[in-house]
């Protein structure tokens, strides 16, 4: 922890508020540059907090951007560039976590909750529709009177209050 703080302080003094991706880094081939930017937006700067290397001013982020561009210029496909980074920094470097055993729960958790809840609601609705038993509850005398008076006055029993 302490080292990170020192590093951050050192970086702040050495390369202060440098911009994220800089003009000197831009590739001459616009198609490659578009790919590089797209990849840069999905790789995590390893010393920052939840920042993509494309947006980060950290030195190591700049080096990683350069590495991405070197791989692209060398003819690597996008998956190959990701593989290159994962081999060095692990899955941590991917802002979009891979779909693997350890992340199934992450990827499928919310859809699973949605599916289970939807099925449960559906079943409950069906059950309710099939069993008419509670549909005719016994009315108390007061309620009976109220029904009578409502019917007499011809009002909708569920008015906008």
């Amino acid at each position: 922890m302490r080292r990170r703080a020192l590093l951050a302080a050192a970086a702040a003094l050495a390369a202060p508020a440098a911009l994220a991706t800089e003009p000197s880094e831009i590739l001459t081939d616009p198609a490659l540059e578009v790919r590089a930017r797209a990849i840069g937006r999905t790789l995590r700067c390893v010393v920052c907090q939840n920042q993509a290397i494309d947006d980060s001013t950290a030195e190591v982020a700049r080096d990683m951007r350069r590495a991405v561009r070197e791989r692209l210029v060398a003819g690597d496909s996008d998956p190959a560039v990701y593989a290159f980074m994962v081999a060095r920094y692990g899955d941590y470097v991917l802002l979009k976590p891979p779909f693997k055993a350890g992340t199934w729960a992450l990827w499928l958790g919310a859809p699973a909750v949605l599916a289970v809840a939807a099925v449960a609601l559906f079943v409950a609705a069906r059950r309710r529709a099939r069993s008419p038993a509670p549909a005719a509850p016994v009315l108390s005398d007061a309620e009976r009177q109220r029904v009578a008076s409502l019917l007499a006055s011809g009002r909708d029993p569920a008015p906008e209050r």
């Binding site: 937006r41 999905t42 995590r44 939840n50 993509a52 692990g90 899955d91 941590y92 470097v93 991917l94 802002l95 979009k96 976590p97 350890g102 992340t103 992450l106 990827w107 919310a110 859809p111």
Partner: peptide, 12 residues
């Protein structure tokens, strides 16, 4: 160690 960033949320 995994990171969960904007691309994940955009997808889910």
């Amino acid at each position: 160690k995994v990171s969960v960033g904007p691309p994940f949320f955009n997808a889910t």
